[in-house]
């Protein structure tokens, strides 16, 4: 009978270790522990261009994550992107004139939304809209613009040099 007992203990340990591994994967490895901001409040923001912003991207204030992007939809009427932000309920003291901009983590990292609180007395309500938004920084456009400016500068300089020469 002792053998039966050890066998059962071994099976018990096996199942327990297996379940513990699953729990570790769920809690320590995945984002399940930080997913609990579902019951937060939602605000919307309209952007001209969201660049590469994805659903579930972080929403930060002063660099600290306080929520996630819930949905990104294209609005047929105003031709812009309608982004719904889900923000943790305990951070509901955002002034009404808070501004939202889409930034990039690092040079090529993922994009996230940074909120910058304004100075208004009234606070944003659930379902409210952030009016001040700044579109995503799009590297290709910036490079294009930079080259264009450089070219314009170059022709301007050469003209100036021609004018000053003789």
């Amino acid at each position: 009978m002792i053998q039966k007992r050890t066998q059962e203990i071994a099976v018990g340990v096996f199942v327990a270790v297996g379940l513990a591994a699953l729990v570790m994967l769920a809690m320590k490895v995945s984002n399940l522990s930080s997913l609990s901001d579902q019951d937060g409040f939602e605000v919307i923001a309209r952007f001209e261009n969201i660049g590469g912003l994805k659903e579930r991207a972080p929403v930060t204030v002063a660099g600290v994550r306080i929520g996630r992007v819930k949905t990104v939809i294209y609005d047929d009427k105003s031709y812009d992107a309608l982004v719904t932000l889900s923000i943790a309920a305990k951070h509901n003291q955002l002034p009404e004139d808070t501004s939202a901009s889409i930034l990039t983590a690092g040079l090529l990292g993922e994009q996230y939304i940074a909120l910058e609180p304004g100075g208004a007395e009234t606070m944003l309500k659930s379902g409210g809209e952030i009016k001040l938004t700044q579109s995503a920084f799009i590297l290709e456009q910036m490079v294009g613009q930079f080259l264009f400016n450089k070219a314009a500068e170059g022709t301007g300089e050469s003209k100036a040099a021609e004018g000053a020469g003789p």
Partner: peptide
């Protein structure tokens, strides 16, 4: 069938 998912979870956890 019971063992396989448990073993796979252990494998991943130990790998990490």
């Amino acid at each position: 069938i019971i063992s396989m998912p448990l073993l796979a979870a252990m494998f991943s956890a130990m790998g990490i």
